[in-house]
Design a protein around this nucleic acid. Structure first.
Lengths: 201, 201
DNA sequence: TTTTTTACCGACTGGCCAGTCTATAAATAG
DNA sequence: CTATTTATAGACTGGCCAGTCGGTAAAAAA
């Protein structure tokens, strides 16, 4: 019987933290259950008690990461009044000093590669995309209400915006040597304005 | 001694073909040397004779794939006269019926994820990016000569264009269920025109 | 108190797989 | 002809690792 009722929650959070850390450091292919155990300060038995298989654990870790990024995205957007400013508020994606960012990319890249070969992981990827699209759609809709933008297929445009963000982000991350932060910021603004310009009032 | 002098070339091509096939099907993480042996119709000893380690083999396979795509890109671009048309000639990236395309994305995604954790693979990724950037830069320079575009930092703009392409491409591939070919074509044209519009004469 | 359930431990197993090693055949060089 | 080198085969090994299993301790239920 659980010594305290919140134990399960505590342990799961502890394991997800450890998983996040390990997965970002060693990559999905290089991460062992034992690695995660060690990072979490739990034995294998303890770990497996909460997450039955490696895949279940990894999936939970990916979801945890995306939840955090999602929260942060929503928070940052909400600091701006104008929908267009909200849509263009993703400068923080290109901040090398931010550990969540620096560590996040390997995770995203790993998930994309897993998603290419495994339907379950692909669904997680789709969830992630859909969440992002929803956030952006809300801003677009507000802008249409306010007559800043003409009517449009909001979902499609939101998909375009998020695809542009993601393309520039992964490129910026993998091409460190040649792609500067400034390049990334300029490119995403121009790219997204290109996507939006047909609908500017 | 080799029975025929071209044997090495033949075998290497044979192995690369097999590697390409296996790697795209099973992914980098799921591919065994034995898998590649079987696909190539060679024994392990035979395979290792030509590619000493798994990493060397995989790297060669990635390079082979990129060479093919590069050739195809150059060929397709050369069919257009106007530089802008050349730059926008990448419709073929979004063709599900094309096996090279359908099979290529998993490979690219795998390399990106490997590149996030391994410097050697990251260098291959950079080569790939640089090749693409060179192709696009050439078109941009021609356009500037022809006064279609104002002067610009050609390399930077080429990087932007290729990042937009890649973002939309991976998104389109992983989000099959919701992202149509038409969406991809529309988005890339708008995104790239956004990147280019500040320099349109 | 006894029994059951939960939380956790860590040794162990079975399977997989990269790379090694021995063998062989054939070609060539000397 | 003999020695050497190359091309290939495939058995084998050593290490790794996911998941299992038999435990223990403690809480709670009976």
């Amino acid at each position: 019987m659980p010594p305290i009722p919140e134990l399960e929650e505590i342990r799961k959070a502890q394991i997800l933290d450890a998983g996040l850390l390990t997965l970002t450091r060693k990559g999905a292919a290089g991460t062992t259950l034992d690695d995660v155990c060690k990072a979490a300060g739990l034995s294998k038995g303890g770990l497996i008690h909460y997450y039955k298989t490696k895949k279940i654990l990894f999936s939970a870790v990916f979801r945890e990461f995306f939840t955090r990024i999602f929260t942060r995205s929503a928070d940052t957007m909400s600091q701006f009044d104008l929908p267009l400013d909200q849509i263009l508020s993703y400068d923080w994606l290109y901040d090398t000093d931010d550990p969540q960012i620096r560590l996040g990319y390997p995770l995203l890249l790993d998930l994309m590669s897993l998603a290419a070969h495994d339907e379950d992981y692909r669904m997680i990827m789709e969830e992630w995309i859909n969440n992002w699209v929803k956030l952006l759609s809300a801003a677009l809709e507000k802008a249409i209400e306010q007559k800043t933008f003409k009517p449009m297929d909001v979902t499609d445009v939101a998909r375009s915006i998020s695809a542009v963000y993601q393309g520039i982000a992964t490129r910026w991350y993998l091409g460190k040597d040649t792609h500067t932060r400034q390049w990334a910021l300029d490119t995403y603004r121009k790219g997204i304005m290109g996507v939006l310009s047909p609908f500017m009032a």
